[in-house]
């Protein structure tokens, strides 16, 4: 009985995760510019992975596996936040045509 409830919760959580991954992809395709697309990818995919990790953690057979899943999510989160900033910064610089007055990003 408990197993059934856990399984149902896993299905619900991973399904929610898939919806967010789909939302990220829909945003990537529909949104009008690089920066808006980055919003969709970063925020929605982070949640998608979070829900899938939660769903899978319920099926984990040891505490190691739970922490490992958590670690995967945390590292992906940090990577996503960093990558989004780097892509946005580079895209912004390209948009501005690399004018000399604008090249001081992140130097101070």
């Amino acid at each position: 009985m408990l197993e059934l409830a856990t399984d149902a919760l896993t299905v619900a959580l991973t399904a929610a995760g898939l919806v967010f991954f789909l939302a990220g992809t829909v945003g990537l395709i529909r949104f009008p510019d690089t920066f808006s697309r980055l919003h969709a990818l970063t925020k929605a995919d982070n949640l998608g992975l979070g829900f899938i990790v939660l769903g899978l953690a319920l099926q984990a057979e040891s505490w190691h596996a739970v922490f490992k899943l958590g670690l995967i999510w945390a590292l992906a989160l940090v990577a996503a936040g960093t990558a989004a900033q780097l892509v946005a910064r580079t895209a912004l610089r390209a948009d501005e045509g690399g004018r000399p007055t604008r090249q001081a990003e992140g130097r101070e």
Binding site: F35, S36, L38, H39, T42, K43, N46, L77, V78, A80, G81, T82, A84, Q85, A88, R89, A91, L92, R93, R102, A104, E105, G106, E108
Partner: peptide, 29 residues
């Protein structure tokens, strides 16, 4: 600032796009 930028990129509607002279540049949705 980098940590703040990363965090803001996950908050509703904000995305960091580097900084310029100590000022953070943000794209908002």
């Amino acid at each position: 600032r980098v940590a703040l930028g990363g965090e803001l990129s996950l908050m509703p509607g904000t995305l960091a796009a580097g900084s310029r002279g100590g000022r953070i540049i943000l794209h908002v949705l």
